[in-house]
Amino acid sequence: MGMPNRKYADGEVVMGRWPGSVLYYEVQVTSYDDASHLYTVKYKDGTELALKESDIRLQS
């Protein structure tokens, strides 16, 4: 078993793309699913969504 190939840690605050949009919002990573390679993130309004790594970026 190798290390999970994840870029962002639980609790890390990053920018997540809103689905169907080009806009990124501040989100907190809450979990990562090794099987689906999706991150569960929480937006400031409390919305929780699963995002692909390509829809997440570090805060500038």
Rank of each mutant, 00 (worst) to 15 (best):
R17W: 03
S60W: 11
S21C: 07
M3W: 12
S21V: 04
N5C: 10
G2E: 14
L51Q: 02
D34F: 12
I56F: 03
M3Y: 13
V27N: 00
D55K: 01
D33K: 02
Y43F: 13
M3E: 14
V13D: 04
L58E: 15
T30K: 13
G16F: 07
S54I: 09
T47S: 09
Q28H: 08
A50Q: 15
L49G: 08
Y43W: 11
D10Q: 06
Y24C: 03
V29A: 00
E48Y: 14
A50D: 10
D10G: 02
D33M: 03
M15P: 01
L51E: 00
V27A: 13
M3A: 14
S31Q: 07
S36C: 07
A50T: 14
S36A: 11
K52E: 12
S31M: 07
K44H: 12
P19V: 03
T40A: 06
S36I: 06
E48K: 09
G16D: 01
D33Y: 02
D33A: 03
T30R: 07
Y39K: 00
D45F: 04
T30E: 10
R17S: 03
Y39N: 01
R57C: 11
E53S: 04
D55R: 01
S21W: 03
V22L: 15
M3Q: 15
S36E: 09
S31N: 11
T30H: 08
L58V: 14
P4Y: 06
V22H: 14
G16T: 08
P4D: 10
D45C: 07
S31F: 08
G20M: 07
V41Q: 01
Q28G: 02
M3N: 14
S54L: 07
T47V: 08
E26M: 10
H37T: 09
T47M: 08
R17P: 06
K52V: 08
E12C: 07
V14G: 02
Y25F: 13
L38W: 06
E48H: 11
G46E: 05
Y8R: 00
G16H: 03
A35Y: 12
L51H: 01
K44E: 09
Q59D: 11
L51T: 02
Y25G: 04
L51M: 08
A9W: 08
Y24L: 04
S31D: 09
Q28W: 09
K52W: 08
V14S: 01
P4K: 06
H37L: 12
D45V: 02
L49C: 08
E48Q: 11
Y43R: 11
V27K: 00
V13G: 03
K52F: 12
A9L: 10
R6L: 03
R17I: 07
M15H: 08
D55F: 04
V41L: 05
Q28F: 08
R57Y: 12
V22R: 12
A9Q: 15
T30G: 04
N5K: 08
